[in-house]
Nucleic acid binder design. Structure first.
Length: 572
DNA sequence: GCCGTTTTCGGCCCGACTGTTTTCAGTCG
């Protein structure tokens, strides 16, 4: 039986919910929640770690007790402590917590006084007005709960960064015209450039915050005002995107921006660190007693806590605080460092632009080179090229290339990796190409060992340079295929092969965590758009965001090299 | 239950908003 990290994380998360309803020690509950979050974000499966004999109690937030419980889940598939609680409370009771306004205390009251243990029962009770008379409830709250159950908010729904982006920009433009407003910054996971965002957090400054709040809740795209306070408001837009706005005085801007940029664990780490030194950190500044030490800017904020400035993309508590203290933060890659795009499709396979149109789009961006990399013929759905067609396509690419004075076209292919790890094109064709990408497009469900072996075999072909979209994930649609990551990265590094950071908004593959791990293993990267149209070369910025979140510097990425240096890397 | 530049015990981030709780609890981020 395969036990995934997601499954284990859910066990601890449910355990925390039920203990909260039971009224257990809140710090213990927090410990379980922290562990659940850690486990959900681990780059490698706990099963693998335990099989390898690793001491999982060394993982932050996981200590002796929780590691024992993890082993129990891995061995039996269950957690006894949770099973006992589930006998006391019905299994769907924790669903109530997903409703706005219901936390553990109210869930307990609902269950013990009215026997409500499902969202359906909650809805009926609210409609029959049986909730408003309970202690701690009211008619207003009852109406809010009813609305919550009817809307049945899609749990944990997150927006792709690229889908949230236009809304964030439109809001920013609107707010800048609000009376009395001074600064507007979209903070939160959006500012950290996470590949998906749950909501938008906006930080503003003004001497008349009430006016700003008034203006904000009148934004034309607002469907519903959840909260409307003096310095803080929350609204829902018509597309279900939640937006929180905070307004503070300019002298607090740095601390507030830092606070609302997060991540939460980064903030908590800094607060605990400062508290130990006798300072208090809140969203208004850094205080020693009553005296404000900082901060009007984030730079000042970090200086005051004795750290180098940490870029928002790094604020995930993945070692950035230590690096900032020791002065070893990476000099993150910038979009302007890139000289070309190394993964593009044309009408020769499943793209909708010609070689010439792609070349023009690349020239318009100021690139020095582009790789045209259409599909091999293995997959019928993408109209790929077979042997002779590839040779013809190479000629066509070279012909267009010869007509371009200031842009070089590299003749490439995105070659399918077959189930057994062999490639869909023979070496006799591959050796004619300037650049060879390989990718998995089927058989996603092999065992981790089989999948790892399959891909490594493909990469061992001496004509292969880059593994395209290395884990095959489609955000919200398809999970990454399972690999033995540690062994895989070590082997890829040893072979000197390059991993792609695919900038398609639904792919973002590799993801940030694996990028960081792969870099530590000594791997280099290519950031590419996998464009099928001429107007999506601009997606490259999403790839840059992801690379920055993975701690990459200019030197880690091959398409920051001038053409000659790139050609050297691409020699077999 | 976790964790240690104060610690193996005794802490655990901190504040805004809502409601009807006349002084604060519950929820949320």
């Amino acid at each position: 039986m395969l036990i995934t990290n997601t499954y284990i994380a859910k066990q601890f998360s449910q355990l925390a919910d039920l203990l909260a309803i039971q009224g257990d020690n809140p710090f213990k509950i927090r410990a379980y929640r922290n562990a659940a979050r850690t486990i959900a974000n681990l780059p490698e499966s706990l099963q693998t770690k335990v099989n390898r004999g690793e001491d999982i109690a060394q993982i932050p937030t996981i200590g002796s007790h929780i590691s024992a419980k993890i082993r129990e889940i891995l061995q039996t598939g269950h957690l006894k402590k949770l099973e006992v609680l589930k006998r006391r409370f019905p299994s769907h009771l924790t669903d109530l917590l997903s409703i706005e306004g219901i936390g553990p205390k109210r869930a307990k009251v609902l269950y013990e006084s009215l026997g409500i243990d499902t969202l359906d029962k909650l809805r009926s009770a609210a409609r029959a007005h049986r909730i408003q008379t309970l202690p701690g409830f009211s008619a207003t709250l009852e109406a809010k709960i009813l609305k919550g159950t009817v809307l049945a908010k899609k749990e944990g729904h997150r927006f792709l960064y690229a889908d949230a982006e236009p809304h964030a920009q439109a809001l920013e433009r609107y707010l800048k015209h609000c009376p009395g407003i001074l600064d507007v910054v979209i903070a939160g996971s959006f500012r950290r450039r996470k590949d998906t965002v749950g909501d938008l957090d906006i930080v503003t400054t003004s001497h008349t915050p009430g006016q700003v709040m008034e203006c904000f809740v009148r934004y034309p795209d607002v469907r519903e005002v959840i909260l409307h306070g003096d310095t803080r408001s929350t609204v829902i837009l018509h597309n279900d995107l939640q937006v929180d706005l905070r307004c503070v005085a300019p002298e607090s801007f740095g601390a507030t921006l830092h606070y609302f940029t997060g991540s939460k664990s980064h903030n908590i780490a800094i607060r605990i660190f400062e508290k130990a030194k006798g300072f208090k950190v809140n969203e208004y500044g850094i205080f020693q007693g009553k005296e404000r030490i900082a901060s009007a800017t984030e730079e000042e904020f970090y200086r005051a806590v004795g750290l180098r400035y940490i870029e928002p993309e790094l604020r995930e508590r993945r070692g950035e605080i230590r690096a900032a203290r020791e002065g070893t933060l990476p000099a993150l890659i910038e979009q302007s460092d890139l000289h070309g795009d190394l993964h593009l499709h044309t009408v020769a396979s499943d793209g909708n632009a010609t070689i010439e149109q792609m070349a023009e789009a690349g020239r318009a961006r100021g690139y020095a080179y582009l790789a045209i990399t259409d599909h091999s013929h293995h997959l019928p759905i993408v109209h790929g090229l077979d042997g002779d067609a590839v040779l013809g396509h190479i000629k066509a690419i070279r012909k267009v290339d010869a007509s371009l004075p200031d842009l070089t076209l590299l003749a490439g292919m995105e070659v399918d990796i077959l189930e057994d790890g062999t490639l869909a094109l023979p070496d006799s064709i591959l050796k004619e190409l300037d650049i060879v990408l390989v990718g998995v497009h089927d058989h996603f469900d092999l065992t981790p060992t089989q999948q790892t072996r399959r891909i490594l075999k493909a990469l061992s072909n001496p004509y292969v340079h880059i593994l395209a979209h290395p884990t095959g994930r489609l955000i919200g649609q398809r999970a990454p295929y399972r690999l033995r990551y540690k062994a895989f990265f070590a082997e890829v590094a040893a072979m000197g092969r390059i991993l792609e950071i695919n900038a398609q908004p639904t792919r973002m593959d590799l993801d940030d965590i694996h990028i960081q791990k792969a870099k530590e293993a000594g791997i280099r990267f290519a950031i590419s758009t996998d464009s099928h149209r001429a107007d999506t070369l601009e997606y490259i910025r999403y790839g840059i965001y992801q690379a920055r979140r993975g701690w990459l510097e200019k030197g880690d990425v091959i398409n920051t090299r001038p053409l000659n240096a790139l050609r050297t890397i691409l020699q077999p």
